[in-house]
């Protein structure tokens, strides 16, 4: 698609917001990490927040509904996160690409026609699997036993479905109803009560 400055800024500013929320959530997640420590799997404590990583791409895809939006949005979010001082540095641009592509895949296959719960949920599931694959190769998760990996994937999928297929579309629909997303595809089909 042809990106206009206002589209880029909309996605970028929302990505900053999601970044801020994500930072806040990981602090809250510290407790979970501690709880899981005695069970020997503190790394699982990060998984419930994994859906927040995909929020930028889910939001962008759901609102704009055009080819390429997801990948660009997630790379944008990753560059922003790098600038916000993430300790992983530029690698997250790579993982951003993987996430964006993973999420957008199903929409490309369905020719960007369906954006209902089922498709969003499917996108979330695929994205969870793809990112776990990325973790297997790059983060060395292949060293972790299968049952734990399966548990991680399950938690990640639940998190992604809840945050990216339920919460994010609800927020976006609300925004469309509130009249702040004028001109974007998400507004079609959202009833607005303008006449009293």
């Amino acid at each position: 698609m042809k990106w206009k400055l206002k589209d880029i800024l909309m996605i970028a500013v929302c990505a900053v917001l999601f970044g801020v929320i994500f930072l806040g959530a990981t602090y809250a997640g510290g407790a979970l990490y501690g709880l899981l420590l005695p069970l020997g799997m503190p790394s699982l404590g990060y998984e419930p927040f994994y859906g927040l990583y995909f929020m930028a791409v889910a939001f962008a895809v759901y609102v704009i509904r055009k080819p390429g939006v997801g990948i660009v949005a997630e790379i944008l979010a990753a560059v922003i996160e790098t600038l916000m001082g993430n300790f992983f540095g530029p690698i997250i641009i790579l993982s951003g690409f993987v996430q964006g592509a993973g999420f957008e895949l199903i929409f490309a296959l369905t020719k960007y026609k369906r954006f209902d719960f089922k498709t969003m949920a499917l996108a979330a599931v695929i994205c969870s699997c793809v990112t776990l694959g990325y973790n297997l190769i790059v983060s060395g998760y292949d060293m972790i036993a299968l049952p734990v990996l399966a548990l991680m994937l399950a938690v990640r999928i639940v998190s992604a479905v809840v945050i990216d297929a339920i919460v994010t579309p609800r927020l976006a629909d609300g925004l469309a109803r509130a009249g702040v997303l004028g001109g974007y595809a998400v507004c079609e089909g959202v009833a607005k009560d303008l006449d009293c």
Partner: peptide, 24 residues
């Protein structure tokens, strides 16, 4: 900035120690 990285690394260490896949 290092602190969260150390925490995450320690998490992976513990996870790998108790739930590792074993020797390759």
């Amino acid at each position: 900035l290092l602190l969260p990285a150390l925490v995450a690394a320690f998490g992976l260490f513990v996870t790998g120690y108790f739930h590792g896949r074993g020797t390759r």
